[in-house]
């Protein structure tokens, strides 16, 4: 067969599998151990005193290590949100769902999670929500121990009070 008669190769499959053994790091490990006990632990920056959760061992704003551990509430306020309707690999949650930034009481950075327990069109900026934990015997050092956040019924926080965090 001449080259002209051959069909070009337009695609080949080259499966790739690499196995990684992740480590969470020191600060995040402590945080995950807290989660396994049903507690949310943040870290406070020694310079700007802001509280980070989940902690990564440093304050990106001040570029210093954070060591002081602080308890953060599992309640908070929705800063902003999106309704996800598009499928994506690796997603844990059935579609559609509300992906939210929650400012936990006592923390200074938003926490990424999902809201359930109310119609999607009721999710709004300023809404008060609380973590819904898995059953106590299923608590483990993973964020999957928090199934989602759900409305508490408390009055909304006015937008002006959230401006600094948006």
């Amino acid at each position: 067969m001449s080259d002209a008669e051959r069909k070009p190769v337009r695609s080949i499959q080259t499966p790739m599998r690499l196995t990684y053994h992740y480590t969470a790091g020191i600060a995040t490990s402590r945080f995950l151990h807290g989660i396994a006990e049903g507690r949310i632990l943040g870290q406070r920056c020694p310079v700007c005193t802001k509280v980070y959760v989940p902690p990564r061992g440093s304050c990106p704003r001040c570029a210093v290590a954070t060591e002081e551990e602080v308890h953060v509430s599992d309640r908070g306020t929705i800063l902003t949100f999106a309704i996800v309707r598009v499928p994506s690999e690796n997603l844990d949650v059935p579609l559609p769902f509300a992906c939210v930034h929650v400012l936990l009481d006592g923390a200074d950075v938003p926490f990424f999670s999902v809201v359930q327990g109310c119609p999607l069109d009721e999710v709004r900026i300023g809404m008060r929500v609380a973590a819904a934990w898995v059953e106590p015997d299923r608590l483990a050092p993973t964020l999957q121990s928090i199934r989602w956040f759900e409305p508490t019924g408390e009055p909304d926080v006015p937008f002006d009070q959230l401006r600094e965090h948006l």
Partner: peptide
């Protein structure tokens, strides 16, 4: 066992 920032931060400092 540290994350990349925990390894890097003291070195940069």
């Amino acid at each position: 066992l540290r994350n990349e920032v925990e390894i890097l931060l003291p070195v940069v400092q």
